[in-house]
């Protein structure tokens, strides 16, 4: 069979070399294949978006199990706004994301400046260390941080009688840790097109180092910093595995709360909160796109 197809296809270039008919043959073959690829691609987009469409639609269903269409209602949204547990969890999640983003953006930007603007011994090793948090499986970092916090807290208790427990603080520390690497990557990309002669020119004109940074370097790399910060913020909001391990019992965080509910049963209330989270992420994405566009 393979021989037959080979010879049949081998005839194609022969035919296409003949003047006149050549264009028609190759063009038809091209569009036929493109059509098939296009159909596949359309199916893949359907696959990617079907769950999201279903989720949003079913946050408005009157069906008490949230799995069938049973008429339109806003009941699940009104229930959400009266659910203090979920509101607290949302507040905590946003608080953790804000604080960890601020710290990770500061540390990550400084690291990116060092990596792009200077040559120093140990730079290659630092490069590896900065990429490791991105490639390491999340669950390994999760169990490592859990063990680490337990170890440090035990030591503090034994040495100083200081009793600490896992909670929001440990979640912030963990989120900063995995976000730094992503901020570094984003800011480094924006530094790559940076012309250092601008800094030299500023200093030639008598600006000191701080003024040069404030007036020249910072405004130019600001879009990259904003992009990195938004990425860190999204990652923090999205994180579930590490939060589950390091938050300890009693700390309300939105993804952990959603997970605990979903494990038990499918409820339209979860559809509603998911839709709101979706909306929030979309707004963030739009903001980051705007920040990127400003660069041009």
């Amino acid at each position: 069979m393979s021989e037959a197809t080979t010879s049949a296809n081998a005839a194609l270039p022969e035919a296409s070399r003949q003047p006149g008919g050549s264009k028609g043959v190759s063009e038809r073959g091209f569009s036929w294949r493109t059509g098939l690829l296009g159909a596949h691609t359309a199916l893949m987009y359907l696959f990617l978006f079907a769950p999201i469409v279903v989720l949003v639609a079913f946050s408005f269903t009157a069906d008490p199990f949230g799995v069938a269409w049973n008429g339109f209602t806003l009941e699940w949204y009104t229930r959400l706004f009266n659910n203090t547990r979920l509101i607290d969890a949302t507040f905590n999640t946003l608080l953790v994301a804000t604080i960890s983003t601020a710290i990770a953006t500061l540390l990550g930007t400084l690291l990116a400046l060092a990596m792009e603007h200077y040559r120093f011994r140990g730079r290659a090793a630092t490069d590896v260390l900065l990429y490791l948090p991105i490639v390491i499986p999340e669950i390994v970092l999760a169990v490592a941080l859990l063990s680490f916090f337990a170890f440090v807290f035990n030591a503090l208790d034994a040495l100083f009688g200081l009793r600490l427990r896992q909670g929001m603080l440990t979640v912030v520390l963990a989120h900063v840790t995995f976000s730094i690497a992503f901020v570094v990557v984003t800011v480094r990309t924006s530094l790559r097109g940076f012309d250092r002669r601008l800094e030299e020119a500023a200093m030639d004109l008598g600006a000191n180092r701080w003024n040069t940074f404030r007036r020249i370097t910072f405004p130019l790399i600001l879009p990259g910093i904003i992009g990195g910060a938004l990425l860190a913020f999204t990652l923090s909001l999205d994180d579930f595995i590490i939060s589950l391990f390091v938050s300890g019992p009693g700390t309300l965080l939105l993804p952990v709360e959603v997970y605990n509910r979903v494990k038990r049963a499918v409820t339209p209330e979860i559809n509603a909160i998911s839709t709101l989270m979706l909306l929030f992420s979309m707004v963030l994405v739009l903001l980051s796109q705007l920040a990127q566009r400003q660069r041009k």
Binding site: F49, V266, M277, V285
Partner: peptide, 22 residues
Amino acid sequence: LVLLPFWTNFLVRTYAWMIILN
């Protein structure tokens, strides 16, 4: 469009499949 679903919570997207495959 490929990236768009990636920006929604992973847990939420997995949960959506529970609604579909139920």
